[in-house]
């Protein structure tokens, strides 16, 4: 009783919330927006054709015409880095949508139906046990390296994480008296699931989605870097770095520029995810009522 009093007495105001979140997420949102805009308008922004080779211009240092220099085929590094954002973002968003939709569906079923749960969770445990990069590499190497197989290969290992989250929320929520009350009111099971249980997953899923997105972009870069990603003809951050590996001692910036772009992109997404979590954290929500 005393506990409840304390909670009731100190609601967190919206201003405090804003103070908690701070400036980092705002900067992150700006950086991410810039990256997205650069990807969409790449043909207009990039100073050169990212795949046009020019043997004369190999491995040139930065200059007015080539702000970041050129690579070993004489291609403009800046243009390649700008175009590289496209694959990363498409994969990041695509994987997030697929993993969240599939994970939500499977997780809801698993959390609500005991019989299905046993089987589903064994499969998910198995998927979790396989290192995601290895699994993705195996899938891509067998099925060929198109953007679709890469996307599928990255999605599969992400699904169990979403399923586990959704399932645990459903398991907790179904013990809530308001869910029991709904059952007592004669509400059908699918409707209980839809109306009373699923909305509980939205806030945590939003947070999880940002982490899935960051992880997908990272895995894509690793696949490309190891040579198991989309074809080397398409510039991706991972591909650019992979090709520059042998010149690393000579031209370290060939690797570090795309690496910086990649890191900034993932960092922004993670910071937004952390901010979302700070705002949506169910424990903070409880304190607020």
């Amino acid at each position: 009783m005393a506990e409840k009093t304390m909670r009731g007495a100190f609601p967190l105001s919206t201003r405090q919330l804003a103070a908690r979140v701070g400036a980092a997420p705002i900067i992150a949102a700006v950086v991410l927006s810039l990256i997205i805009l650069a990807a969409i308008f790449a043909p207009f922004i990039a100073p050169h054709d990212p795949i046009l080779q020019d043997p004369v211009m190999r491995l040139k240092p930065p200059s007015g015409d080539f702000p970041l220099g050129t690579d070993n085929f004489g291609r403009d590094l800046l243009s390649r880095v700008i175009y590289g954002a496209r694959v990363s973002l498409v994969i990041g968003i695509g994987v997030t949508i697929m993993a969240v939709v599939l994970g939500l569906a499977i997780g809801l079923v698993s959390g609500f139906f005991r019989t299905a749960d046993a089987i589903i969770m064994r499969i998910m445990d198995g998927l979790m046990a396989m290192p995601s990069v290895l699994l993705a590499i195996a899938i891509v190497s067998l099925m060929g390296a198109s953007i679709w197989t890469v996307m599928a290969a990255i999605t599969i290992p992400e699904i169990p994480r979403v399923v586990r989250l959704v399932r645990s929320i459903v398991l907790t929520a179904r013990e809530e008296p308001y869910v029991e009350a709904a059952i007592a009111l004669g509400t059908s099971m699918p409707r209980v699931l839809w109306r009373h249980l699923m909305p509980n997953t939205f806030a945590p899923l939003t947070v999880q989605a940002t982490y899935v997105c960051a992880s997908a972009i990272l895995t894509e870069a690793i696949l490309s870097f190891l040579g198991a990603g989309v074809s080397t003809e398409t510039p991706t951050w991972g591909n650019i770095m992979a090709e520059a590996r042998i010149y690393f001692r000579l031209k370290p910036m060939l690797i570090l520029w795309p690496g910086l772009a990649l890191s900034l992109c993932i960092l922004s997404i993670n910071l937004l995810g952390d901010a979302a979590r700070d705002i949506l954290d169910p424990r903070m929500g409880k304190r607020e009522d």
Binding site: L218, L256, G259, S263, L267, N270
Partner: peptide
């Protein structure tokens, strides 16, 4: 911690090589 999460291992790897080895 958030940097450690966000910077891919190979980027960190090359940064460390550049700094400490090269």
């Amino acid at each position: 911690s958030v940097l450690g999460f966000s910077i891919p291992v190979f980027v960190i790897g090359y940064l460390l090589i550049k700094l400490f080895a090269i």
